[in-house]
């Protein structure tokens, strides 16, 4: 049961209000039609599952309905930072 700071609402809310959308910073290829099957497969299917710092997209689905990014330690479940879409993480794995 996480307690997540929503950068749009400006306060912590319970995990039940949020939905995890998986790994962050995956950009849709600009020209999908020119992607090879392998490139497209990597975009669609391949995801990181690091032990330690992980960047994820969360959606404040029961609140303001905004998506944002979370840097979370997958070992301790600590949330190290949240940041808005389009921004870059400050806390990154070594």
């Amino acid at each position: 049961m996480f307690y997540i700071y929503c950068p749009y609402c400006g306060e912590h809310r319970e995990e039940e209000e949020f939905h995890n959308h998986g790994q962050a910073h995956i950009e849709r290829p600009a020209d999908p039609d020119s992607c090879t099957d392998e490139e497209w497969g990597n975009y669609m299917f391949f995801r990181k599952s690091p032990k330690g710092l992980h960047h994820e997209i969360w959606d404040h689905v029961a609140g303001c309905r905004k998506f944002f990014n979370v840097t979370r330690d997958t070992v301790t479940y600590e949330i190290k930072e949240v940041y808005k879409m389009g921004e870059q993480p400050k806390v990154v794995a070594e």
Binding site: H19, H21, E27, R28, I57, D59, V61, R65, K66, F67, M85, G86
Partner: peptide, 13 residues
């Protein structure tokens, strides 16, 4: 609705 918002907010703002 969530799908539309996801693409709008994360890919095509």
């Amino acid at each position: 609705l969530n799908w539309l918002e996801f693409y709008h907010q994360t890919e095509w703002p």
